[in-house]
Design a protein around this nucleic acid. Structure first.
Length: 432
RNA sequence: UCCGCGGUAGCUCAAUGGUAGAGCACGUGACUGUUAAUCACGGGGUUGUAGGUUCGAGCCCUACCCGCGGAGCCA
């Protein structure tokens, strides 16, 4: 393949004649001068067609081109202060590749449902483009963070024989002659096996929840990264979560500022992530709620509104740790200083974005873990392999899960997670 | 599952119970610097579905369908 020129590289080709290939984003005309706006996936550039400088046949290709038609445009690159990207092309030739039928997404207002039905086309728009690029930067940063710190990627299976935590509603399917299988809701238990084998591991993959959650924070299929580290206690775990968030946000600010700007994201809260993240206990969180006059009862889990109220007290993500063990998963270790508490931590994003990280120190004692499994009425044989991790050289260990879509939503300042993933899956949406 | 809001042109939305409209998109024309270009003209409707009230229903009533937001659950 010959090296192809993209719009993002135009700054190195000022004064040269080049050919770009892409799609028609929009066009404008003013009689004897016409403008074609080409989109090639890396940016937009305006081509200028002047009637007196062009063969009539080329000038008239303007009339044939419809929105999103594919074509090649050859011309001379010129710096142009008035152009949004800073560059413009004086067009010498236009080669039509395919004329698009009437494009359903016009440059004006559309409702979300209409756009979601055409998600495969909506992804071409500049706003979705910006979000996807930030998502990519976040995922790239996550991998970079762990890969440069000696973590081994150890992905967990999607098909699982039983509920990981026994609480959520799972998607169920027939699995040959072996009965029912379930789509995973978390790779964590497998991650723990990985940590006992490799010391530091992370699981990174899709997870599935069949609950009929109907809010701006929920998808039925979402991506989660779950590091797990042998010998880490809760404090180590919080240090790791803090460093990961700081790495992600710093990279997005460094590499995706144009995208954040086009999303009109106020980056003040993001800049604050570089500072140490506040850590408060569940008790202190409850005190904040009471101070604000909310009728919150100790022992309950924090609801969406509670999380928002707590996060409003801080100008960056806040870590809430040591929750009542009764409301947390069976595998979380109890606080040796207070048996009513679990060594759990949630990270709440600011501005009401809610929980983006949930994690804990794991129970490493065989007898206590077995007792929890029984207390939660979980099928013991399904967890036999998991108990092996406590039979053979058990050590303290910790980990957490970071929800990718909620993180993207927060960093981009979106009002719904459905725009953070290319093809969202929600209770009422399975297509496209 | 519960609570609230909504469904009118391809899209976004108007319309005291009294002739269904605008902007955008599309088509035709004008314009040599447009930035969601502008201007003129034009085609475009089973008002979510089924009933009911009324001289007359997009509007009022009943049921249902679909969507959105929130609660619960969670990342």
């Amino acid at each position: 393949m010959t090296s192809r020129l993209y719009i993002e590289d135009l700054s190195n080709h000022i004064g040269e004649q080049v050919t770009l290939a892409g799609w028609l984003y929009n066009k404008r005309s003013s009689g004897k001068i016409r403008f074609l706006i080409l989109r090639d996936g890396t940016g937009l550039v305006q081509g200028v067609l002047v009637k007196n400088n062009l063969a009539e046949e080329i000038f008239n290709k303007f009339d044939e081109l419809t929105q999103e038609s594919s074509f090649r445009m050859t011309g001379t690159v010129r710096k142009e202060e008035r152009a949004p990207g800073g560059y413009e092309m004086d067009v010498q030739n236009v080669e039509i590749i395919s004329i698009a039928k009437e494009y359903p997404i016009s440059p004006k207002d559309h409702g979300v449902d209409f756009l979601m039905d055409r998600r495969h086309l909506w992804l071409r728009s500049s706003r979705q483009h910006a979000i996807m690029r930030v998502r990519h930067e976040i995922i790239r940063s996550i991998r970079e963070f762990f890969d440069t710190r000696g973590f081994t990627l150890m992905d967990a299976p999607i098909f699982t024989p039983a509920a990981c935590e026994g609480t959520s509603t799972l998607f169920e399917t027939e699995y040959f002659d072996l009965g029912k299988a379930y789509l995973t809701q978390s790779g964590q238990l497998y991650g723990e096996a990985g940590a006992m084998a490799f010391g530091k591991t992370y699981v990174f993959g899709p997870t599935f929840r069949a609950e009929k959650s109907k809010t701006r924070r929920h998808l039925t299929e979402f991506w989660m990264v779950e590091p797990e580290v042998a010998f880490n206690d809760l404090n180590d775990n919080m240090d790791l979560a803090e460093a990961l968030l700081q790495h992600i946000v710093a990279n997005v600010l460094k590499n995706r500022m144009p995208e954040l700007t086009s999303l009109e994201r106020n980056t003040a809260f993001l800049e604050n992530v570089a500072k140490p993240l506040p850590r408060i206990t569940y008790d202190e969180a409850v005190a904040i709620l009471h101070k604000k006059g909310l009728p919150f009862e100790w022992g309950n889990d924090l609801g969406g509104t509670d999380e928002t109220v707590i996060s409003e007290e801080f100008d960056r993500p806040v870590m809430v740790h040591r929750y009542p063990s009764a409301i947390k998963a069976f595998y979380m270790k109890r606080d040796p200083e207070n048996e009513k508490l679990a060594l759990a931590v949630d990270v709440l994003a600011p501005e009401g974005y809610g929980e983006i990280i949930g994690g804990s120190q794991r129970e490493d004692d065989y007898d206590l873990l077995l007792g929890r499994i029984k207390e939660h009425d979980l099928p013991q044989e399904a967890f036999d392999w998991y108990l092996d991790l406590r039979r053979y050289g058990s050590v303290p260990h910790s980990g957490f899960g970071l929800g990718v879509e909620r993180t993207v939503s927060w960093i981009c300042g979106l009002d719904h997670v459905r725009e953070t993933i290319p093809f969202p899956r929600m209770i009422y949406r399975l297509t496209p």
